[in-house]
């Protein structure tokens, strides 16, 4: 136990912190949905956020690219520091932030456009004009999201013709096309079958080479399989955070253990 802890501490010091969360509180109307959360999220690692429905895990990662902006009557306190800047501050350039922090959503949400246009969209809104460059980047993104072989002859077809799993990989391709530094996954496999889920998981582990990844998931096996670090959330509080291995094999908190062993949740 002790050696494990020391090892964990050592490990932490080797990692480079990409996102630093300090004393974060979030209110939705009168209700506090996140309570005093502080954690470091490390560069080029996969960090999983697990917890039962309504524990605030989605709310939490949606603050990283400030999607909370669309929630009426919400209020946040504390700091989320990405590369030295608190992105919760009022003067944050949200457009620039979202270019750096990409997001893949729970349900695949391709635009009702062609496969090509779906991926090119992010580039075009970022001011890309040259068609050859755009096309090169689109193809590159499709290859990196393991979709190229399946769609290379149908780039001009509507994205809604793809299966759910393919649509989700298209959304990942669309996200990585703009080369963000961080990718947030909000339960990306919630609506997918096991085979599509396996493909997405494989992809996430592959993307870790280049991106800092934060994934919210209901599925504990998924967290155990793909993440390096895991945080357990319960009723808006972060109960435990550490190396995934430790969280799953040696949880320190009783509640974490209960959740992981399936006693509730």
């Amino acid at each position: 136990m002790l050696t494990l802890n020391i090892k964990e501490e050592l490990n932490k010091t080797e990692e480079k912190t990409k996102i630093k969360v300090k004393d974060l509180n979030f209110y939705y109307g009168p209700k506090q949905t996140l309570k005093n959360i502080s954690m470091d999220i490390y560069e080029k690692k996969v960090t999983a956020i697990i917890g039962p429905s309504g524990c605030g895990k989605s709310t939490f990662i949606r603050l990283f690219n400030r999607m909370d902006e669309f929630v009426l009557e919400s209020k946040s306190e504390g700091e989320i520091i990405i590369d030295g800047k608190n992105i919760l501050e009022k003067d944050t350039d949200l457009i620039d932030l979202r270019r750096r922090v990409g997001m893949v959503f729970q349900k695949p949400n391709p635009f009702p456009k062609t496969i090509m246009e779906n991926i090119a969209y992010g580039l075009k809104v970022n001011g890309w004009k040259d068609n050859f460059q755009i096309e090169t980047r689109v193809i590159d993104s499709l290859k990196k999201s393991a979709l190229w072989e399946e769609v290379k002859y149908r780039l001009k077809e509507n994205a809604y013709g793809l299966s759910g799993g393919q649509q989700q990989r298209l959304c990942i391709a669309r996200c990585i096309a703009v080369r963000p530094e961080i990718i947030l996954f909000d339960e990306p496999c919630a609506s997918l079958d096991p085979i599509s889920t396996a493909k997405i998981e494989e992809l996430i582990m592959d993307l870790k080479k280049d991106y800092t990844i934060v994934i919210v998931t209901h599925n504990m096996q998924q967290a155990a399989r793909i993440s390096d670090y895991t945080a357990f959330f319960l009723m808006g509080e972060m109960i435990e955070y550490g190396l995934t291995k430790n969280i799953f094999e040696n949880p320190k908190d009783k509640r974490t253990e209960d959740y992981i062993t399936g006693r509730f949740g």
């Binding site: 669309f70 979202r98 270019r99 949400n109 992010g122 809104v125």
Partner: peptide, 17 residues
């Protein structure tokens, strides 16, 4: 669907775009 709106904003698109 608001998911399309979110997808666009998450890519760094402005509101008018």
């Amino acid at each position: 669907p608001s998911s399309l709106r979110e997808a666009s904003y998450a890519l760094g698109a402005e509101k008018h775009t």
